[in-house]
Design a protein around this nucleic acid. Structure first.
Length: 732
RNA sequence: GCGCUCUUAGCUCAGUUGGUAGAGCAACUCAUUUACACUGAGAAGGUCGGGGGUUCAAGUCCCUCAGGGCGCACCA
């Protein structure tokens, strides 16, 4: 025995528990041990060489700043899974990384430069802007890594990856070429979502709809025109080529097929054909739709069906490109007023009606999205893949449908299928500079796609970069060395769990399934654990503008990361939002202290226990021992079912209200005033063995305090050697 | 409009294939030179959103209504 009386207890154990003094020291010990790295665990004989692998790829946080509580929840849940599996003897890999987050990062840096120096990206030029962005990204990266460490993440830093480092860039180029060669990537002149503020295209999923009041104007193009139409955007009407009505609409049927010439619509001559199309709703407005092919998604498809021309009247800066001095080069909003005034003046305006409109804005810049026809790169989700007999859509759908990928909670299956059913071709080119450059080169009419630039002279590379989700889509395997055939890829892929927020199910999760199914003909992961949003005590989203955010670093400083982790996990079922405030965290910092105090009691009271004697319990202690054994069985199953919200609560409850309140209390009399000597040793064995078991069970949840306590518990057998708790075996 | 989800104690939430309602926090009463500066014991608190149905049995399954939250599409 190491301790013979209270004076022999470690000095720090005589004080209340201090997480801030403990946690950084413990993390350093883990890092130095190398046990985050599965190869080292095998080398040192901790993990069997033929052990089953268990892999999680950390969703790479954007290098746009610092981590918030959502990240803290992600790190906590994944660390719980990884520590649990490591203790169970799996060859456990948790691979960390960061995401360049193309548009998000560039717009952030651009914004800062504009604010501080009044310069735009065009003032700086491509090279200088990229230098600035990279510098910012590096700083963000360093902050993020240190935050992840503070949270206690037992991830393998030796394998850390970045979505835009050399290896990942090769993976991106390789994938692009493969898809290009298979005809799945094409370049087309199509209507896209244009963000005039960010000066780039964005995907459908990057649009956020905001409800605003707006005016629905009803008018005729000219006095002679027979049909009134309604619009909230009169200025776009200078680009109209048709009026569409429903085929069954008796009011207008007799006009279908006729063409009208309008000599002057606010300075622009129009040719309007009356057409019938099913997409028109009879009951909306006048039941007649002015068709503006170049500036409306739905009108573009109508123009497709009716073979209409598509004159562009708005440019990339949301300014008018036609008309006379009244509207030419004016912003759309100014031109709107001009056109409305003109209509009123001409007596063409039939009515104005206030209406709610969902206006499309760009998620990252807040700019109002302008549909524009542009030449862009797309991924065709409906084309059959050569020799595979299926489309990318099917590749995304099948594994979830057939159960080779399980989503937790399962009701997200429906959301997922619904999204796939509505999915259109994915526009992957972006007119920003920070990102993976499209591996396509042009020379006159010639196009070349390859992983490397063509060697002969005269080729110019496409100026555009790729949507950030293109590279994140490769994350589970690009991190393991693909396209090289590496050992890591062989061992650790498919990964086991993808743990992430439900808000990026479509952005990211679906795209990983697409990319992996296409390139590797397998799934990227077997289980998707979706966590909800972490909200403040009143249920509001944490945001900068509300100032209600909680910084995980502050929590670690004030209460300890263990307490923060417990507060995040207890009662937080997958898929549901959770509320967190300081009171909840404080409750679990008390718990850490409770563990600490109980440890002091146990170590102080087992000092004279002869550890070489066999363990013997009396009847009541045996019952307590058996109860813990059945608790272990129960929670092991629940851990495997990802019910961490239940396990954490059960352990908290057992430790405090059974181990401390019942077992330790009972042991006091049996140790200080025993009826017999066997009474005393039974009580001593019970508190000693239960403390050991409970530290193991609690370790995935509260790794720091349990590891620290572990370091102070004398070992039963000195020959087995003292191991770190992180690599101890999960109790059975 | 299409779809998902929630409504259980004052608050936050569990409740696994149907089998007599559970935790944490808060509040209440009492104890306390105690391993505990962050303590213990006890009691209290719910006709499980409303209505209907299936069943021997419904918080749980079905229908319906009401109110929150969310996703998608559209709003010309």
């Amino acid at each position: 025995m190491t301790f013979e009386n209270k004076n022999n207890l470690p000095e720090r154990l005589l004080q209340p528990y201090s997480p801030s003094a403990t946690e950084s020291v413990i993390y350093k010990i883990w890092e130095d041990s190398g046990f985050f790295n599965p190869d080292i665990c095998v080398e040192k004989g901790i993990t069997k060489p033929d052990a089953k692998p268990f892999t999680i790829m950390m969703p790479p946080p954007n290098v746009t700043g610092v981590l918030h509580m959502g990240h803290a929840l992600m790190v906590t849940l994944e660390d719980i899974m990884i520590r649990f599996k490591r203790m169970q003897g799996y060859k456990t890999l948790w691979l960390p990384g960061t995401d360049h987050a193309a548009i998000a990062t560039q717009s952030k840096v651009e914004g800062e430069i504009k604010k501080k120096e009044g310069l735009s990206r065009h003032d700086l030029g491509r090279e200088e802007l990229l230098r600035r962005v990279n510098e910012f990204a590096q700083n963000s990266h360093d902050t993020i890594v240190s935050q992840v460490k503070v949270l206690g993440a037992s991830c393998d830093w030796s394998r850390e990856a970045f979505t835009m480092d050399e290896k990942r860039n090769l993976a991106v180029r390789t994938m692009f070429k493969k898809m290009y060669d298979d005809g799945l990537i094409y370049r087309g002149h199509r209507i896209v979502n244009w963000d005039p503020k960010g000066q780039t295209t964005i995907s459908d999923d990057e649009i956020v709809y905001e409800e605003r009041k707006s005016v629905l104007y009803t008018f005729k193009y000219s006095k002679d025109f027979p049909i009134s139409i309604s619009t909230t955007r009169p200025e776009t009407k200078v680009g109209d080529v048709a009026v569409a009505v429903h085929p069954d609409d008796t009011r207008y049927q007799h006009y279908v097929g006729q063409t009208f010439e309008i000599a002057d619509f606010c300075g622009v001559p129009l040719t309007i054909k009356i057409i019938a199309d099913d997409s028109v709703e009879k009951d909306f407005g006048t039941g007649a739709l002015g068709v503006t092919p170049a500036h409306s998604m739905i009108d573009w498809t109508i123009a497709d069906r009716h073979n209409l021309p598509r004159p562009q009247v708005i440019n990339e800066y949301a300014k008018m490109t036609v008309g006379d001095e009244r509207i030419l080069n004016k912003k759309t909003t100014e031109a709107r007023e001009v056109v409305v005034a003109w209509l009123r003046d001409q007596g063409l305006l039939d009515g104005e009606q206030e209406t709610n409109q969902n206006i499309a804005t760009a998620e990252r810049t807040g700019g109002i999205v302008e549909p524009l026809p542009k030449l862009q790169w797309f991924i065709d989700v409906n084309k059959e893949i050569p020799d595979r007999g299926k489309t990318l859509k099917q590749i995304m759908r099948e594994p979830v449908e057939q159960g080779s990928i399980k989503i937790l909670p399962d009701y997200f299956n429906k959301t997922y299928f619904h999204w796939i059913d509505n999915l259109k071709d994915w526009c992957i080119s972006r007119q920003i500079w920070y990102g993976h450059r499209i591996p396509v080169w042009y020379k006159g009419e010639e196009i070349y796609c390859g992983t490397e630039a063509p060697t002969d002279a005269g080729w110019a590379q496409d100026e555009d970069t790729l949507d950030t989700w293109f590279s994140s889509g490769l994350w589970t395997f690009s991190t393991l060395g693909w396209p090289e055939k590496t050992n890591d890829l062989e061992i650790y892929h498919p990964t086991d769990v993808l743990e992430t927020g439900y808000e990026i199910l479509f952005f990211w999760v679906a795209r990983m399934i697409l990319m992996t199914g296409y390139a590797l003909e397998t799934v990227p992961f077997k289980t998707i654990y979706l966590h909800g949003t972490v909200r403040d005590g009143q249920g509001r989203k944490m945001s900068k503008s509300l100032g209600n955010g909680i910084d995980p670093l502050d929590i670690a400083q004030k209460f300890g990361s263990d307490a923060g982790r417990m507060a995040l996990v207890v009662g937080t079922a997958p898929g549901t939002d959770s509320k967190i405030d300081e009171n909840k965290i404080k409750a679990y910092s008390k718990f850490a202290n409770k563990i600490w105090n109980a440890t002091r009691f146990v170590l102080d009271n087992v000092a004279d226990l002869n550890m070489n004697e066999p363990i013997e319990f009396d009847t009541e202690d045996q019952t307590s021992h058996d109860e813990l054994t059945s608790l272990i069985k129960e929670i092991t199953i629940e851990m495997e079912e990802y019910k961490f919200y239940i396990v954490s609560e059960k352990l908290y409850h057992y430790f405090w209200h059974t181990f401390a309140d019942v077992i330790i209390e009972r042991s006091k009399k049996k140790i200080s005033d025993p009826a017999s000597s066997s009474d005393k040793t039974s009580a001593q064995w019970l508190i000693y063995t239960q403390l050991i078991t409970l530290m193991k069970l609690l370790h995935p949840f509260m790794p720091f305090v349990t590891e620290e306590v572990w370091s102070m518990i004398p070992q039963q057998s000195e020959t087995s050697g003292k191991k770190l708790l992180i690599i101890e075996s999960w109790p059975i």
